[in-house]
C-alpha cells in the first residue's frame, strides 16, 4: 500500500510539473484562430476522474499553486479553482461512476468552461482589469473547443500514467458505486 501511495504521489507530482511546464513553454504559445488549449483543467479533471475526489482536490491545489508561481500571478486563484475542479470530477466518479467513452470529453469541457469562467469571475472580483468583450468570449469558447478536441487523449495519457499505481484497477470494476458516500479507490486499498 505504501509503495502504491509513494508511486502514485511521485507520478502525480511528475504529471503536475510536466503539465505546467508543457502548458507554459509550449501549449500556451500555439495559437489557432486566436485561442489556445489549456491542459491544466483537463489534467486536474482527469486526475480527479481516475483517482477520486480528495487526491483530485490535492492535485488541483498543487498544480494551481505551481501555475501561479510559474506565471507569477496572484497566488491562490488557480489553486482554488483547480482544487474545485479536481474535487468535483473525483466526486462524479465516486458517486456516479460514469462508464461512457465520452465521459472524459464531457468532464473536460465542463472543467475547462468552469476554469475559464472561474478565472474571469475571480479576476473581476479581485478588481483587476479584464478586457471584457466579444474577443474574450471568443477566446474562452475557442479554448473550450480546443480542450474538447484533446480531452480524451489527455485523459487516456493520464490514466496510462496512473493506472498501475492505483490499488484497484478501474478497468476491472463493473459494479456501480453507491450513489452516496462512495470513496476514492485509494480508500479501498
Amino acid at each position: 500500500m505504501n509503495l502504491n501511495y509513494r508511486t502514485l504521489s511521485w507520478r502525480l507530482a511528475l504529471i503536475c510539473v510536466v503539465t505546467v511546464v508543457s502548458q507554459v513553454a509550449a501549449v500556451s504559445q500555439v495559437e489557432i484562430l486566436g485561442a489556445n488549449a489549456d491542459l491544466v483543467p483537463l489534467v486536474a479533471a482527469s486526475v480527479g476522474l481516475i483517482v477520486g475526489a480528495l487526491p483530485g482536490a490535492i492535485f488541483g491545489f498543487a498544480i494551481g499553486m505551481l501555475l501561479d508561481f510559474a506565471l507569477v500571478e496572484t497566488v491562490g486563484v488557480a489553486s482554488l479553482i483547480l482544487l474545485a475542479i479536481g474535487y468535483a470530477s473525483g466526486r462524479l466518479r465516486e458517486l456516479r461512476d460514469p462508464q461512457g467513452a465520452i465521459v472524459p470529453l464531457i468532464v473536460g469541457v465542463a472543467a475547462t468552461a468552469a476554469a475559464q469562467i472561474g478565472f474571469s469571475l475571480l479576476t473581476v472580483l479581485l478588481g483587476q482589469t479584464v478586457p471584457l468583450g466579444l474577443s474574450l468570449l471568443w477566446e474562452l469558447l475557442g479554448t473550450v473547443a480546443f480542450n474538447a478536441a484533446i480531452a480524451i487523449p489527455v485523459y487516456l495519457v493520464i490514466r496510462r500514467c496512473l493506472l498501475d499505481a492505483l490499488p484497484e484497477d478501474p478497468r476491472r470494476r463493473r459494479r456501480r458505486a453507491y450513489t452516496t458516500g462512495g470513496l476514492s479507490p485509494l480508500s479501498r486499498s
Binding site: 475526489a53 494551481g64 497566488v75 491562490g76 482544487l83
Partner: peptide, 18 residues
Amino acid sequence: LTLAALVACSLLLLTVYF
C-alpha cells in the same frame, strides 16, 4: 477536513498575497 484546509489555504494565500 482536508478539503476545507485546502480551500482555507487557498483563500489565506490569496488574502496574504493581495
